[in-house]
C-alpha cells in the first residue's frame, strides 16, 4: 500500500474508534466526568479544606493534575482494551485481518483512537476542574508532551491486554487489580515526601508516579521526581510495549488460529 492508502486506512480506524466511544458517551465520557466531579467536591472541597497545603499549593490545586492524569490513564487503557477485545469477541477483527492494512497501522489506529478518548476525557475533567480552582499552566510543553505520551503508553497497554484476553473477566483484571492501585499510590492525592523513607523508595518503583508528577510539574511547577528521567522512562516504556504489541500482531497471538 502506498502512503496515501495507508493514511486512508489509518484515518478509517481512528474515526471508527472515535465514533465508537462517542456513540456510547453515556458509558465512556459521562462516568469519568461524574466521578471526577465527586472527587473535586469530596476530596478537594470538603476534606481538602481541612488538609491545608500540599507541596506549597492549596490541596484542590494539588490534586487536579493527578485527577486529570488518572482520567487519561484509565480511559486510554479502557478504550483500547474494551474496543479491541470486543472486535476480537465479535470477530469483526477479521474485517481488518483480510484487508491489506499492515499491522503497524492497525496498532497505530487503535492506540490513537484510545489516546483520543483518554485526552478527550482529560479535557472534560480539566474543564470541570475550572469550576473548583484556577488552573495556570507552568510549562505548556511538558504538560502537553507528558499527557500525550502517557495516553499513548496506556493505550498500548490496553492493546496488549486485549490481545491476551479470552473472556470479559480478563479485560477487567489488569485495570482493577494493577492499574487502579498503582494510580492511587502514584501520588495523585499526596506528595510522596509525606511517606517514610522506605515507602518513598517503594513508591519510586511505581511508573505512574513519574507520569502524575511530571504532569503536575507541567501545571504547577512542583514535582517529587526528576522530569528528564520521567520522560526517558515513559518513552522507554512506549518503545518496549509498542515493540511487544507489534510482535503479538505479527505472530497472530490471540487473533489468528
Amino acid at each position: 500500500m502506498n502512503t496515501r492508502l495507508l493514511w486512508t486506512a489509518f484515518v478509517t480506524i481512528v474515526v471508527k474508534e472515535i465514533r465508537r466511544f462517542t456513540r456510547i458517551w453515556v458509558q465512556t465520557l459521562l462516568p469519568p466526568a461524574i466521578t471526577m466531579t465527586l472527587y473535586f467536591i469530596i476530596f478537594g472541597n470538603l476534606i481538602g479544606s481541612r488538609i491545608g497545603d500540599m507541596g506549597g499549593f492549596d490541596y484542590m490545586e494539588y490534586i487536579v493534575p493527578g485527577l486529570i492524569m488518572m482520567s487519561v490513564i484509565t480511559n486510554s487503557y479502557g478504550n483500547v482494551v474494551s474496543s479491541f477485545f470486543g472486535t476480537k469477541f465479535q470477530r469483526n477483527i477479521e474485517e481488518l485481518l483480510v484487508s491489506p492494512v499492515p499491522n503497524w497501522v492497525i496498532l497505530a489506529g487503535y492506540v490513537i483512537g484510545g489516546a483520543s478518548r483518554g485526552l478527550g476525557v482529560g479535557f472534560i475533567v480539566t474543564l470541570l476542574s475550572l469550576f473548583f480552582t484556577d488552573l495556570q499552566i507552568h510549562h505548556l510543553f511538558v504538560t502537553i508532551a507528558v499527557v500525550l505520551l502517557t495516553a499513548i503508553l496506556f493505550a498500548l497497554g490496553g492493546f496488549i491486554n486485549a490481545v491476551y484476553a479470552k473472556t470479559f473477566d480478563d479485560i477487567a483484571i489488569v485495570p482493577t487489580f494493577i492499574l487502579t492501585p498503582l494510580t492511587y499510590l502514584g501520588g495523585v492525592f499526596y506528595s510522596i515526601q509525606l511517606l517514610p523513607g522506605f515507602w518513598q523508595g517503594v513508591s519510586q518503583l511505581n511508573p505512574i508516579l513519574y507520569m502524575v508528577n511530571s504532569f503536575r510539574y507541567g501545571i504547577l511547577g512542583v514535582s517529587d521526581i526528576n522530569i528528564g528521567f520521567a520522560f526517558a522512562m515513559i518513552i522507554g516504556f512506549i518503545v518496549l510495549l509498542g515493540g511487544y504489541a507489534m510482535h503479538l500482531l505479527n505472530t497472530g497471538k490471540g487473533i489468528r488460529e
Binding site: 496515501r4 486512508t8 484515518v11 478509517t12 480506524i13 474515526v15 474485517e95 484487508s99
Partner: peptide, 14 residues
C-alpha cells in the same frame, strides 16, 4: 452503510 464504507477505508479507498 458505515460497515461497508469502513471496510472500503481499510483498502485505502477515500
Amino acid at each position: 452503510l458505515d460497515i461497508v464504507v469502513t471496510q472500503a477505508g481499510y483498502y485505502g479507498i477515500p
